[in-house]
């Protein structure tokens, strides 16, 4: 029976999909409607006011803009530094190359959480507390990015390398004209991975910022939850606004997402 095969699928879909569904529904209701029992599971007269309240009064607009800025800067920087270092480790000869590469790999063994106390002090000493550099500068390089790009660049055929040299290509031209275009899928996948990690950061932005002018949207949600206890509709609208950019991005880049998320597994 084909119909029976849909039963476990349907049950799991309801369990997993329901929290997101009810969040969207509740963002279109008023707070008293959300609290009413029996609950409203479908909004017959959707209200859109909670979104503008969340966006303006609860500063979600500012938080989203801050997150977008910080995230884009991090992704751009991580891609550039990782591609350059990955290329150097794969194609260039210099003393202590192996040691330098090992140092980069070793950073994968040091979780960010174990270094927050001294790192916060460093940020304070640099005069960057509660500013964008505090949110960006510590993430200008990525050990996993360097590792992934080096491995991928080592796979570039040697013939191509020799041909480029004969054509008078220097390292920079070889990198930008040949190596990067060949590896565009991996660079895209890494950029998406970097975007998600930067956008979703929570602990670090929490401890190095204190005013809404520089706070990111994840910390903004914390403020929202604390300050709008009675306005559950605004809270739900806020979570929708915070998740929406990621949702759009994931729909647009589904294939890169799968590749990005599985890159570590396939390489490992």
């Amino acid at each position: 029976m084909t119909v029976l095969r849909y039963v476990p699928l349907g049950v799991m879909a309801v369990i997993i999909g329901f929290p997101i569904y009810i969040t969207v529904v509740n963002s279109l209701l008023s707070a008293p409607q959300i609290a009413a029992r029996p609950p409203t599971l479908f909004p017959t007269h959707p209200l859109w006011g909670s979104f503008s309240t969340a966006f303006n009064q609860a500063h979600l607009g500012v938080y989203l803009r801050n997150s977008a800025f910080v995230t884009l800067m991090i992704v751009l920087a991580e891609v550039i530094t990782s591609v350059l270092a990955g290329y150097a480790f794969a194609f260039m000869r210099f003393p202590f190359r192996r040691t330098a590469f090992m140092i980069c790999i070793a950073t994968l063994m040091v979780p960010m959480e174990a270094t927050i106390v001294p790192n916060r002090q460093t940020i304070v000493d640099l005069g960057w507390f509660n500013s964008f550099p505090a949110l960006i500068v510590p993430f200008l390089a990525s050990g996993i990015g360097i590792f992934l790009f080096r491995q991928a660049f080592l796979g570039v055929p040697r013939d191509l390398c020799d041909a480029a040299r004969l054509d008078g290509y220097g390292h920079f031209r070889f990198l930008t004209r040949i190596v990067m275009p060949i590896n565009r899928p991996l660079i895209g996948a890494f950029a998406l991975y970097a975007f998600l990690s930067a956008w979703n950061q929570y602990l670090w932005p929490l401890i190095v910022t204190e005013t809404s002018g520089v706070r990111t949207v994840q910390i903004g949600l914390r403020q929202l939850q604390a300050a709008n206890v009675d306005q559950t509709n605004v809270i739900f609208a806020g979570t929708v606004l915070a998740a929406l950019p990621i949702f759009i991005l994931l729909v647009a880049f589904q294939r890169q997402l799968v590749r990005g998320l599985t890159a570590g597994a396939l390489k490992g």
Binding site: T81, S82, L84, A85, Y87, A88, F89, M92, R93, F94, P95, R97, A100, I103, C104, T107, V110, T115, V117, P118, N119, T122, V137, P138, L140, A141, S142, G143, I146, H171
Partner: peptide, 22 residues
């Protein structure tokens, strides 16, 4: 070699300041 160090340097500086020193 000089170019190699230059391209590796940004990452190493960030790691030194925000991973190994702390």
């Amino acid at each position: 070699a000089a170019l190699g160090y230059l391209w590796v340097l940004p990452a190493l500086v960030v790691f030194a300041v925000f991973v190994f020193y702390p």
